[in-house]
């Protein structure tokens, strides 16, 4: 891999609640431009705490967050993020939800809608554009949330278990769909999950978050790179031997 400047970089992040012991200590993460990176860890390892700090919503106790080499520690709004909950506003139509980032920035409603329209079409949501979120299926709602995330206009996107509230079939569909779309748009993605399958299906690289020893704060305990060289990008990676190799390495680290 070329030594380009990372899109997103976390340097020695240490996070703690108020005066308490650190939850997460000395975390280094690198996301290169256009790369999809997964962060896998069991529940209670501080995954979401880490994401909040990376999004600039909380200040870390130590360390910094760099976006294209620029320090953005504690500054929200530079990195788009998307959660397990779609957080679509029930009182706005699907298209108005998608273009909310534009409307909030002062773009006139008509112009914002015109910008959102092609994206909705691309995501198979043009029929649903004027419906209320409550009239959509879970998968469609999550696609609408992704459209909104894209319209935030940042090239770095963070996802916190975005598919875990969906039914199994929709979840599997959306994983491949999301990976393809993110790559096509050139997004650099950091995704948090507790699911080794999901991580191996979607990621170019996987960080495993865990405690090096009982009672210690969590940190990165290993890195796994699934070998995708043998298959075409559009093919189903999850049926290959390479996928199983990656998955067993992730599961070993999680033990």
């Amino acid at each position: 891999m070329q030594a380009t400047q990372p899109a997103l970089e976390a340097c020695g992040l240490t996070l703690a609640w108020d005066e308490g012991d650190p939850v997460v200590e000395g975390v280094d993460i690198v996301v290169r431009p256009g790369e999809t990176v997964c962060l896998v860890g069991k529940s209670g390892m501080g995954k979401t705490t880490l994401l909040h700090a990376l999004a600039g919503l909380t200040m870390p106790r130590a360390g910094s967050v760099l976006l294209h080499g620029k320090d953005v520690t504690g500054q929200p709004g530079r990195i788009s993020y998307m959660l397990q909950k779609d957080l679509l506003l029930p009182n706005l139509t699907v298209i108005d939800n998608a273009c909310l980032p534009l409307t909030l920035a002062g773009t006139p409603k008509r112009e914002a809608r015109e910008k959102a329209q092609p994206l909705l079409e691309r995501f198979g949501l043009s029929e649903a554009a004027d419906k209320w979120p409550s009239q959509l299926s879970g998968g469609m709602r999550q696609r609408a949330a992704f459209a909104r995330t894209c319209l935030m206009g940042n090239d770095v996107v963070m996802l916190d278990e975005p598919f875990s509230a969906l039914d199994a079939i929709t979840r599997v569909d959306l994983r491949t769909w999301f990976r393809t779309e993110a790559q096509a748009m050139g997004l650099s993605v950091l995704m948090i999950t507790h699911d080794a399958d999901e991580a191996c299906t979607m990621a170019d690289r996987i960080y495993v978050l865990g405690r090096p020893a009982e009672g210690m704060p969590a940190g990165i305990i290993g890195e796994v790179v699934p070998d995708r060289s043998a298959i075409a990008p559009a093919d189903d990676f999850s049926c290959t031997q390479e996928f199983l190799d990656a998955k067993s390495r992730v599961l070993d680290l999680l033990k």
């Binding site: 999004a55 919503l57 929200p76 993020y81 957080l87 506003l89 980032p101 909030l104």
Partner: peptide, 24 residues
Amino acid sequence: PDQIDLMRTMHASEWQIFRYVKLP
């Protein structure tokens, strides 16, 4: 609270958070 965090990452002002999220 996650909704408010999301609004903050979209640079929403306090008034916009009130108008778009709290009031509805």
